[in-house]
Structure formats: structure tokens, C-alpha cells
């Protein structure tokens, strides 16, 4: 049991394991996002208030979910890296950061586009837009800090510390901005209460959310594999692999 985890946490073991795993997540992402897009955009009923413009939700909400989840995942990876010195965790965090920043940007952009028909403006200083924008800056800070160090190990550890500091701050920022001023509609999904939307509307949304998460896992696996190859390029197993492939 422990031997399995030990092998998995080594870059070489993970490289072999993820090769078998990632196609499944790519396939799941393609099927789920494909089904969700067709169902959500073509078959789900139009909103009685917002008409067809509400369909942006099928991109906006999953992207916003991922934007927050990826930062938490990065902080967990940073913790694992700092406490147990598992290099693989840092490689995963490196691989995740650009996707997280991208998802935050997608959430902001789709929110702005959605704001035009519903609020009549591209930008509103409301609580969730503002905290999303700050999250975007946090992502940029982590990526920039990692790149600013000459030594890779220092950059990794500095980025890990900053991610953990950031993850403690995210809820504080979120609540302080919420108390500051708010206009945004309340959260769409809640685990504890029944959704306010009809089933035909939120089922495709659920499928899209699952599809985005599969996409995230697939991208992270694939990108981590290339980070592994890059960082371990001096190791014998990587050179043997390169020799085999040509």
C-alpha cells in the first residue's frame, strides 16, 4: 500500500501512472462538456426574466468554480511540498497555476459579457466581481514570484508560501468585499439547499461543472508530465525515454 504511494509520488512513477490515467479524463471532459454545451445552449428552456442571455451561466459558473478550486489545490500542493518535500506536488502546482489564472479570466470576461444584457454595464464594482479580480491578481503574483527567482527550488518554496498565505486570505477578502457592497445575484449552487432553478436548467449546468473539473484534471496531468520531463531532463530514465522515442 505505502509502496504504491511512494512509487506514485516519485516523478518517474507518476509519469508512468498518469500516462494511463489522463486519456480517461480527457475523454470524460470531452463527453461531458460536449453534452453540457449542446443541452445547455440548445435544449434548456430560456429564463423567464433574462431570456437566452442566461445561457452564459453554463460557462461562467464552472469557470468561477475552477478559479477558486485551483487556488485551493495549489495551496494544498504547496503545503505537501513544504512539509514532506515531495517535488511532484510542486510540479503539479506549477502546472496548475496558468490554468487557474485563465479560468479566473474566463469567469471575469463571461461575467462582463453577461453584465451587459442584465445590468446594462460591462463592469460593476460588486462583491463577487471584485473578489474575482483580486483572485486574478493573486494568481499573477504567484506566477510572477515563481519566475522571479533564479534558483528553481527557492522559487518553488516562495510560491508555495505565497499560495498558502493567499488561501488564508481568500475567505477574508471574500467576506470583507461582500460586506462592503453587493449587487450580484446570490450563489447559483448551494449544497445544502434545493436549487431555485428548474431541473432542466441546472442539470446541464451540473454536467458542465463536472466536465470542467475533468478538463482541469486532464490538463493538470498532461502539463505535470511535461514539467516532469523538463525538470528531470538530466535523469537517466528521461534520457532513455527520449532515446526510445527517437
Amino acid at each position: 500500500m505505502w509502496a504504491f504511494f511512494h512509487k506514485l509520488a516519485s516523478p518517474k512513477g507518476f509519469y508512468a501512472f498518469s500516462a494511463r490515467l489522463s486519456p480517461w479524463f480527457w475523454a470524460a471532459a470531452a463527453v461531458l462538456i460536449g453534452a453540457g454545451v449542446v443541452w445547455g445552449l440548445a435544449f434548456a428552456p430560456a429564463d423567464y426574466q433574462q431570456g437566452n442571455s442566461f445561457r452564459i451561466i453554463y460557462v461562467h459558473v464552472p469557470a468561477a468554480f475552477l478559479a477558486q478550486s485551483i487556488f485551493v489545490a495549489m495551496a494544498l500542493a504547496g503545503l505537501v511540498f513544504m512539509v514532506w518535500k515531495i517535488k511532484l506536488a510542486d510540479m503539479a502546482a506549477t502546472a496548475m497555476a496558468p490554468l487557474g489564472a485563465g479560468m479566473t479570466f474566463v469567469a471575469l470576461l463571461s461575467g462582463a459579457v453577461w453584465g451587459v444584457p442584465t445590468w446594462g454595464t460591462w463592469w460593476q464594482w460588486d462583491a463577487r466581481l471584485t473578489s474575482m479580480l483580486i483572485l486574478f491578481f493573486l494568481y499573477i503574483g504567484v506566477i510572477a514570484l515563481r519566475g522571479a527567482f533564479d534558483g528553481r527550488d527557492s522559487g518553488s518554496r516562495a510560491a508555495s508560501v505565497l499560495t498558502m498565505v493567499g488561501v488564508i486570505n481568500i475567505p477574508i477578502i471574500k467576506y470583507s468585499v461582500e460586506w462592503w457592497y453587493t449587487l450580484h445575484q446570490p450563489a447559483t449552487f448551494s449544497i445544502t439547499s434545493r436549487p431555485a432553478m428548474p431541473v432542466e436548467m441546472w442539470l446541464p449546468l451540473l454536467i458542465m461543472v463536472l466536465g470542467f473539473y475533468s478538463f482541469f484534471i486532464a490538463v493538470t496531468l498532461t502539463r505535470t508530465r511535461s514539467v516532469i520531463l523538463h525538470r528531470e531532463s538530466a535523469k537517466r530514465w528521461v534520457r532513455e525515454l527520449a532515446g526510445e522515442d527517437g
Binding site: L138, I140, G141, A144, L162, N169, I173
Partner: peptide
């Protein structure tokens, strides 16, 4: 300033 300013918001 890029690292610290977001944390100053609250």
C-alpha cells in the same frame, strides 16, 4: 506591490 496589494484589500 503585486504580491502585497491584493492582501491589503480587507
Amino acid at each position: 506591490s503585486l504580491l502585497v496589494l491584493p492582501l491589503y484589500v480587507p
